[in-house]
Design a protein around this nucleic acid. Structure first.
Lengths: 242, 242
DNA sequence: AAAATAAACTTGTACGTACAAGTTGAGTTT
DNA sequence: AAACTCAACTTGTACGTACAAGTTTATTTT
């Protein structure tokens, strides 16, 4: 964590503590004044850290009350799988390997435009299927430019979290995302991996993830079977209607 | 606009001016100091307004440079239709009425849980089809609890923006949203309104909009034909992988 | 016992200062 | 002409004060 400023240090500390259940969901963080005193910071600085936690969905602030740790539904401005209330516990979720990490040239038809740097680097590719209660629900193909990611192919295991691995191994954090979504009919590839009949409607999602390394983007294509589980998300603010 | 605080007034003014192209895309807003002087406010207050514009995606702030008005792709943490680059101009978009606004009891099977207040009030319903270049792409059914929305049924015209109407007529602003997404096969209803063949894959989206009236939520179900146009969105921050 | 009041908390708004750090352009030097 | 320097901008960080406004708890009054 190379964030040097005071409010970022506090932000990261609190975020880590929230994720580590030091402050469980529904609990109230120490008051702004307490945090000031404990960290020897001014209230403006503390408020800046809390404000970031709020806009990122970790806490809700209530006037007169305090800063309350939000439920896990914070997570995602992007879409996440979302069962009837299950799905929260990871025990019911499993990962199947379809393609172990490997080097390859970029696919001929790639849904996103690549920079010259990315083109020249070639790509690392892997594919996996996510299952909930043994039912495959998502087929995910990931493409990463081969830029300063030493030992990726050997070290990354498909059953771990891709983003957590990038963060731990390369201090790479995801800062944003673009995605496009279609409804498509399952073809032979999908019938195989997702165990659905041909022409079953599937969600197809193309994603481009932005990272804290300005020239490194991650790309993935997802196919989701929504027969049993829907994709869902929650967003705090929006600005315009369609 | 009943926002009483200084920074909210400034925020709303700037937002309105951005949307009205007083500050077109790519242009730079007056500097913080200029805004301070013009509105007779402190820099902290001005920065609070700008900060809100930034988190909502209207501007990007660059140190040493200024506050730059972002491209339209700001819009939506929620999904919006998104053609190849067209679609930005509203001239190519048209609306067809399927069901004019009317009072009715809530549907038997409703995808979201309703509060007692909402249940008792009954609902207002309308449905419309959105077309791009005469091609129907979205079939939208909307349900609104009949709570303090006088003259809605008579005054709301289907070809105007629903959210803009609510804002102008009732000072009702949308503050958040939940949605669930599926891929489904078109049935007879959809083939009719969206002019697609039976079993064409469609996106189905159920949405619950939260508003600044704490007990008033809006509900809609969307069916989208993504053969020609994808749905897309951009999000600034995310916190967790799937 | 119940209700009203007050005190002690909480976060929200608004003001101010000071300096750090990135960007730009005019001016000077080479 | 090119390179450098510097002043004048810009936003970012961090400190401080004061009061408003919502929540909770303890106290007092009824």
């Amino acid at each position: 964590m190379e964030s040097s400023t005071q409010y970022q240090l506090l932000y990261h500390r609190l975020k880590k503590e929230i994720l580590a259940d030091v402050y469980p969901i529904g609990s109230i963080l120490p008051s702004e004044n307490d945090l000031c005193f404990a960290a020897n910071l001014s209230r403006s600085t503390v408020r800046q850290a809390l404000s970031q936690l709020e806009t990122e969905g970790y806490i809700t602030k209530l006037k007169g009350k305090g800063s309350i740790v939000k439920s896990k539904s914070r997570s995602l401005n992007l879409l996440s799988f979302h069962g009837f209330s299950a799905m929260v516990d990871k025990t019911k979720m499993s990962t199947l390997s379809v393609q172990e990490p490997m080097f390859m040239p970029w696919p001929e038809e790639f849904p996103f435009e690549l920079s010259e740097l990315e083109k020249g680097a070639g790509c690392i590719h892997f594919a996996r299927v996510r299952a909930v209660e043994r039912r495959p629900v998502m087929y995910e193909l990931t493409f990463v430019p081969n830029l300063n990611l030493p030992r990726f192919v050997r070290q990354f295991k498909l059953n771990q979290s891709f983003f957590e691995f990038l963060a731990k191994e390369y201090q790479l954090e995801i800062t944003g995302m673009e995605q496009q979504i279609w409804a498509v009919a399952a073809n032979s590839l999908h019938t195989q991996h997702l165990q659905v009949e041909s022409n079953t409607p599937l969600l197809k999602i193309n994603r481009k993830y932005h990272s804290n390394r300005s020239h490194l983007n991650l790309y993935s294509t997802l196919y989701c079977n929504t027969e049993k589980y829907a994709l869902g998300n929650t967003s705090g603010i929006l600005n315009q209607s369609i």
